[in-house]
Lab assay of single mutants.
Amino acid sequence: IRCIGVSNRDFVEGMSGGTWVDVVLEHGGCVTVMAQDKPTVDIELVTTTVSNMAEVRSYCYEASISDMASDSRCPTQGEAYLDKQSDTQYVCKRTLVDRGWGNGCGLFGKGSLVTCAKFTCSKKMTGKSIQPENLEYRIMLSVHGSQHSGMIVNDTGYETDENRAKVEVTPNSPRAEATLGGFGSLGLDCEPRTGLDFSDLYYLTMNNKHWLVHKEWFHDIPLPWHAGADTGTPHWNNKEALVEFKDAHAKRQTVVVLGSQEGAVHTALAGALEAEMDGAKGKLFSGHLKCRLKMDKLRLKGVSYSLCTAAFTFTKVPAETLHGTVTVEVQYAGTDGPCKIPVQMAVDMQTLTPVGRLITANPVITESTENSKMMLELDPPFGDSYIVIGVGDKKITHHWHRSGSTIGKAFEATVRGAKRMAVLGDTAWDFGSVGGVFNSLGKGIHQIFGAAFKSLFGGMSWFSQILIGTLLVWLGLNTKNGSISLTCLALGGVMIFLSTAVSA
């Protein structure tokens, strides 16, 4: 259960009878995928790494000078000259100064003066180019299975845990398959586009800190620079940016070097996208990844198990997540596992009318040892309800109150669905055939309105939902006002479609 501690969480529900669903994975976010007769899966884009970055340009932001020398000439005696002028490691300046009897010249006039100092770069920052084909995306998957609280967001041991898996995709191999043991396998067909235009970005490294910066900004930095990788004795261009020549006297000129420019660069980098280094690879934390999940090989585990009949206890007080759902960790005293956990939410304890829904599909106890633990997640209705676990006299209950409203949740879900469709863009549509167009249209309606429909009408039977949709269509056909007619027709059509397409 990876997503319960992530604030940016998206719930995606598969269409009834569908074998695939489109998701948008982004750094700092987590996606929970639910479908009829399929286990619930949490998917998170953990890291995006980039390798084989080529150094484009380096800037010196802290330097020192040494070996200063000057040469001067009297008027009419030609130009002052130093051998160091031809050495690229030196920074030199030529000027004219007033000369006369007082400073060793027989004539009054302008004399030539040249001053040089050896330039040494102490600290530099480097910009590297990123090729999209060198990106690698690491995705962690977790099935809502027989897990306890100690396994949440624990990325170790996934090789031997059938509840978890790690997959890596690249532009050259965008397809992967996550093996989930008894739950089958989940196929991923990803489109490795981060949403960032790397043709316009460089990877900047300064003092063990890293950013993504725009090329134009990078090339306009007014500091000494050299092109390409460091060859040991780089040729620094624009050395004068960190060196200041003071007022010249008759035979000498003082040279000083400016202080470190790291603070000024940090100020200019305010708002830039931060990154990290992992050995020789860069780690990015921006952008998104679009994936199509193929769920035809994914299956529920323990459908044929019998119900657990022994007593359950709450190991922890049920807690609310950031998303309005409830996490419950229970301990089973029996030894008759594997068995299914009898769990439901009810409005009252007399009729036990089921409300809400299970995020953890078909929760089971897989071990036959005593005191096995299991964590599950529920989506309670707004208002008061009861969490009921167990059967008969051994069942345990917990009162729950959820604040908020169904309308607010439906609106929030619609906005999130619209954002998801905007990110998917043209990849969500198939114009290759008439059937493809209608299929894409259905998927689009489901992406945007599916979660809201589930919130508003999830407790009704599909037949009642179709009746309401048919009534809206009838009202649309018999209303003389054009805008009201079109609105009723659209709402009725969407409702009829979703009542037959969205899983219960």
Rank of each mutant, 00 (worst) to 15 (best):
R164P: 00
R9M: 11
T487N: 05
S483M: 08
L477N: 08
C308S: 12
A272N: 14
D22W: 08
M345E: 01
G259D: 08
N103F: 07
T406M: 11
S16L: 08
V257S: 09
E276V: 14
L424N: 08
K124G: 01
K297S: 02
S455Y: 06
L441I: 05
T120E: 12
G436A: 14
P222I: 10
M421P: 05
Q147H: 00
G482F: 12
A361F: 09
L498M: 12
S306P: 02
G29S: 15
D155Q: 15
L378C: 04
D379G: 10
I43Y: 05
A346T: 11
S372V: 00
N478E: 04
G417E: 05
E79W: 12
H288M: 12
T233F: 06
R9C: 10
L486K: 06
S499N: 09
L82A: 01
A422M: 15
A272Q: 12
Y59L: 02
T479P: 00
V434Q: 12
N154I: 02
K281D: 15
F312T: 06
S173L: 12
F198P: 02
K409D: 02
I496W: 11
E240I: 07
S403Q: 00
T126D: 14
L472D: 02
L486G: 11
R175W: 11
R420Y: 12
L201M: 12
T194K: 15
Q147I: 02
A241R: 11
D426K: 15
R57E: 07
S199R: 03
F183N: 10
D83T: 13
T233A: 14
V56H: 03
N208P: 03
K290N: 05
G5E: 12
T19R: 02
A418R: 01
V328Y: 09
D42H: 04
L180R: 03
G195K: 05
G18H: 02
V326C: 08
V169M: 12
A176H: 04
F218S: 07
T156F: 03
L188Y: 06
C291R: 09
G263V: 00
G106Y: 02
F218D: 09
L293K: 04
P234Y: 05
A165P: 14
E191L: 04
D296L: 05
T231I: 10
G450V: 07
W20C: 07
W225K: 06
F411Y: 14
E274A: 07
G425D: 09
A410S: 08
C92L: 03
H27M: 13
A69I: 12
T353E: 00
T49V: 15
N439I: 07
Q36R: 14
K239H: 08
S66I: 14
V437S: 00
G28I: 00
D384N: 15
D384K: 12
W462Q: 10
S499R: 02
D37R: 14
G271F: 11
A413T: 15
H219W: 14
V91Y: 03
N154Y: 06
M34A: 05
G404W: 06
V391Q: 02
K251H: 04
M277H: 05
P171A: 03
D296K: 06
V33P: 02
M206S: 03
R138I: 14
I468N: 02
V343F: 04
M421K: 07
Y203N: 12
V388Y: 02
A413P: 00
Q89Y: 09
A178I: 03
K93C: 12
G383A: 01
S86L: 14
Y158T: 09
L284H: 03
Y386F: 15
G425E: 11
F245Q: 07
L223V: 13
V153M: 08
L212S: 12
P234F: 12
E320H: 05
T414Y: 10
C92P: 01
I65H: 03
K301F: 10
A165M: 05
V355R: 01
N163V: 02
P338E: 08
R193A: 03
N439M: 04
S403W: 13
S149M: 14
T267K: 15
M375F: 15
A268E: 08
S464I: 03
G392F: 09
Y81E: 10
G157A: 14
L201F: 14
G182I: 03
G111L: 01
M495E: 13
Q77H: 07
S199P: 03
M345S: 00
R252K: 15
V213M: 13
N362S: 08
L25Y: 08
G14W: 10
V355C: 07
D336W: 13
G442D: 05
A80K: 13
D278K: 13
G5R: 05
T309H: 02
G195Y: 08
F119V: 08
F453Q: 13
D384T: 10
H249G: 05
Q331N: 10
A241G: 01
E320W: 08
L376K: 07
W225R: 06
P174M: 11
T360C: 05
A452W: 11
G157W: 03
I448C: 10
C74W: 12
G404Q: 08
S129I: 07
C339E: 08
T126N: 12
D430Y: 05
S16N: 05
D379I: 03
G279T: 01
I359N: 05
F449Q: 12
T360A: 11
P174V: 06
T369D: 15
Q89W: 12
G145I: 06
V24Q: 08
K454C: 11
G404N: 08
V473L: 15
E162C: 09
L472F: 12
L186W: 08
Q447H: 12
Q36M: 14
N439L: 13
G100D: 11
S485R: 02
M34L: 14
Q36I: 14
D42S: 01
S7K: 00
P39H: 03
L424V: 01
V343E: 01
S403Y: 15
D247S: 06
P75T: 03
T309W: 10
L307V: 13
P174F: 10
T19Y: 07
V46D: 12
G145D: 07
N371T: 10
V326M: 08
R138T: 08
G482V: 05
T40A: 12
G187L: 15
Y137W: 10
P174N: 08
A227F: 12
K340A: 03
F198G: 01
H399N: 15
N371K: 08
S306F: 04
S499C: 12
F463W: 14
T267C: 06
